Amino acid sequence: MHAVARAYVSWALSHPARFKLVFGRWAGAAPELRSAAEAVRGEWLRVVTEAQRAGCLPAGDPARLAALVQATAHGAADLAYAGHLSEGSAVRTLPGHLVDELLDCLEEAAGGTGNAESGIGPAGGGSDGSR
């Protein structure tokens, strides 16, 4: 889970125009953008469902939990891009740290410690400021 969340944040910060395009407000029908956004949501759902099955995340509606994790990663990336989330900001943290903290809390609530081997649980550090 941590690796997927960090990859999402990293991609968003490395490709801000694409990130804003795919997840921004669309004027008119945009089937390619809708398809891209739905594919990302589908991947979040898959990873969350797998993590729940492995006992790394609490039981419950996987779609809602996937939305919570994606919204946190998305918001953290957006705030970091805008300069409101950095080690020098009032919050004094990086986007990866916030996402890791949420996942740590969810893993603790599930009674698990993650599964780094499968990419579901905690893993090593990332350039986005995560462990």
Rank of each mutant, 00 (worst) to 15 (best):
F19G: 00
A17F: 05
A116G: 14
S35I: 03
A110Q: 01
L98A: 04
P58K: 00
A116K: 11
L98Q: 00
A37F: 08
E50V: 07
G75D: 03
A36L: 10
G28M: 07
T72A: 11
A7G: 13
S14E: 15
A71I: 01
V91E: 11
W26Q: 15
P58C: 06
L79A: 12
A77P: 00
L33M: 10
Y81S: 14
Q70L: 10
S89F: 07
H15P: 04
Y81F: 13
G83N: 06
K20C: 10
T113A: 14
P31A: 06
A54N: 03
Y81E: 12
A30P: 01
A71M: 10
R46Y: 08
L85E: 09
W44R: 01
L13I: 07
G75H: 04
P58E: 09
E107A: 15
D104L: 12
C56L: 01
A80G: 03
P122T: 04
P62T: 06
G111I: 10
V48C: 01
T49G: 09
K20W: 14
D104Q: 13
A76P: 10
G129P: 03
P31I: 04
G28E: 08
T93K: 01
H15A: 13
A37L: 07
A37G: 06
A71V: 07
A116T: 11
A36T: 01
H84A: 11
F23G: 02
C105A: 15
S10G: 12
P16V: 05
A17K: 10
G129V: 06
S130Y: 07
E117C: 02
L79V: 03
